[in-house]
Design a protein around this nucleic acid. Structure first.
Lengths: 352, 352
DNA sequence: ATCGTCGTAGCAAGCGCTTTCTATCGCTGA
DNA sequence: TCAGCGATAGAAAGCGCTTGCTACGACGAT
């Protein structure tokens, strides 16, 4: 039926062992023999049997990339960058290609674990886990256990855009400085003269939400604005446009006099803009708006969005290279990646 | 080292064969035996060796989803929908889970082929190929050959949002009616009274570009507007915001008096809006703008974008189910999915 | 009481590859 | 001239699982 190594060997008049060695290029083979084998491979249109090879060699060329939401460019950009970094690291040697695949957890902890098990089952060469973690201790424990098992089985584990985990299960961690970024964003608003600043946060159970909110609070506290308003002007929602819209209406109801809204991310900020506009408020004349992440569409928003730029592409590439073992891990295994404040047209001094 | 089937068998005091049958649930096993095996699996924290299983059974539980650009929600939505449809089809039986993974080709034909080879190597159970095809005959031939080989090897091939291919390599095709959608969009503009309509097309080599442009031309021709202007008012670019921006400036230079711009998709439309606004033109008062796809952000654009809605999520789900063999293919193997005209605030009658 | 049958479980032969160990050949140096 | 060695190729033993076939009781039917 399908062509096997033995078929190729027969056609090239060598032993299967030799064909295997030519294909893997990890053993000296005379040039003329190699030539003959390669020709046979070509003529028979032979494709290696991955499972058989993985079984015999006890390693596979699968690399998994876990994302929370594949329809969100935040993850798409990182995943795409990681995937191409992994694809490009194939040193040109035949058969050296890795199969970098992305798995969409939809933000569900169970699916996250399920995918990790599936990847473990496939004896994946590496796993890149992206995006904010759940704060839930039970899940962290389960995840740590799973990653440890993966690590023990020889799978390289890399965290990207996610806080470090306890234990030494993880080969490398690339964490975003969400807290610092959020702080500088709020500081920007404060320096413009804003005092009544609403905050549209993400889901409480996510570390990203907590870190960004902490950064915001840091800045507010430093400005002496940590009164009871802090809680009253914070609304939690999901990382969606609709959530930003709803939350902003709520904020407006709680304090119609607020002069700025900080959103958990750019997508949420878009929803906030819609709600404000609908309320007859102009941006930034009446109310300033700020986002986070600097996704591609943010610069196109009207007005263009002030936000914190996260080097998603660069982080993805680095994560991919780390997963391949092509880069050495940062000292201590953890690198914190700073965000960069991008001041654009959606923020301005408050009126009066 | 790692736990094997034999270890589980020993602990449950049965033969490896029995453990395998319990895990696969495809052979009668006495309830008490099953119970004992399951407990042993649990106690030893056993994870099946995927490659070994795939080798012995000559099938794997890998399903590949190919996309052009993972950072583009157009693909993200379809891929996410397909992936969850595939995950959910696991009929509850233990071990029945498929590993649905998405592969990012970046629009490169070579990478497309490479990924297909890699999936073939893994003996993937199914492959879903999304997005517009390349018009290039050489690539179509190569692709057809590859897909045929995959099909012959038992991989179910499903096309989603992509025109049908020659031959019987493909199990099912879900094609979008790009041409019909584009036609109704332009008809809408014509019915508003527009006559000088610019068209910002995608890359010439993509079938999606060609189909949408054909639909536009259909409508223009039917309105007796197929003069030399047809070419003059068409500019090709990529499916990006920047490309839409550049192309629209070009269009404006060619004919400052145009009253409407139709873009190849929503992302491009956003760029077009930016260019128009920069030129001091108001939307839709001075110039109407229309997109295609109805991505989530389109309703949030200012003004909200008139576009053609493609049921990306539904199509993705259906493709996923087809890939699992959970749905029966449409008659003839091809289903054409219509788009729905969404008239919003970015289009209005021309001035005067 | 005997035989066929049904329901379970075990045996053992691979699946297609990798890799260790061994064999062979042509040289080089003494 | 011959031992010894480097370079290259082959033989064969698995890797961990699936599955066709066989084995074995227990039971109802004759």
């Amino acid at each position: 039926m399908t062509v096997t190594l033995a078929d190729v060997a027969a056609r090239a008049r060598v032993s299967p062992a030799t064909v295997s060695r030519v294909l893997n290029g990890n053993y000296p083979v005379a040039a003329t023999t190699r030539e003959r084998v390669l020709r046979a491979v070509d003529e028979l249109d032979y494709v290696l049997n991955g499972p058989a090879s993985a079984l015999a060699a006890a390693t596979s060329d699968l690399v998994g990339i876990l994302v929370n939401d594949i329809a969100d460019p935040f993850f798409g950009i990182m995943a795409g960058a990681a995937q191409s970094a992994i694809g490009d690291t194939g040193t040109g040697r035949a058969g050296g290609e890795k199969l970098a695949v992305v798995c969409n957890t939809g933000g569900s902890p169970e699916r996250e674990l399920t995918y990790l098990t599936l990847l473990q089952r496939q004896r994946a060469a590496a796993v890149v886990v992206t995006g904010g973690a759940l704060v839930d201790p039970a899940h962290i424990a389960a995840l740590t256990a799973k990653l440890t098992k993966l690590g023990d089985a020889g799978t390289r584990v890399v965290l990207c855009g996610r806080p470090p985990m306890p234990g030494d299960a993880v080969a490398a961690t690339l964490a975003f400085d969400n807290r610092g970024g959020a702080r500088s964003l709020t500081e920007h608003l404060l320096s413009l003269g804003h005092r009544r600043i609403g905050y549209v946060a993400g889901p409480v159970e996510r570390s990203t939400t907590r870190d960004r909110l902490d950064g915001h609070r840091d800045a507010m506290t430093a400005a002496g604005l940590d009164g009871p308003d802090a809680d009253r002007l914070t609304v939690h929602g999901r990382y969606t446009r609709a959530s930003g819209y709803d939350a902003t209406r709520e904020l407006l109801a709680r304090d119609p006099s607020l002069t700025a809204v900080v959103a958990a991310n750019d997508t949420v900020a878009l929803g906030a803009c819609a709600a404000l506009r609908e309320a007859g408020l102009r941006i930034p004349d009446d109310v300033s708006v700020a986002g986070f992440d600097d996704l591609p569409f943010s610069i196109d928003a009207v007005p263009s969005l002030t936000t914190v730029r996260l080097p998603l592409h660069e982080a993805g590439v680095r994560a991919g290279r780390l997963a391949m073992g092509a880069d050495t891990p940062p000292p201590g295994g953890v690198a914190t990646i700073p965000g960069e404040l991008m001041v654009r047209a959606s923020t301005a001094p408050p009126r009066g």
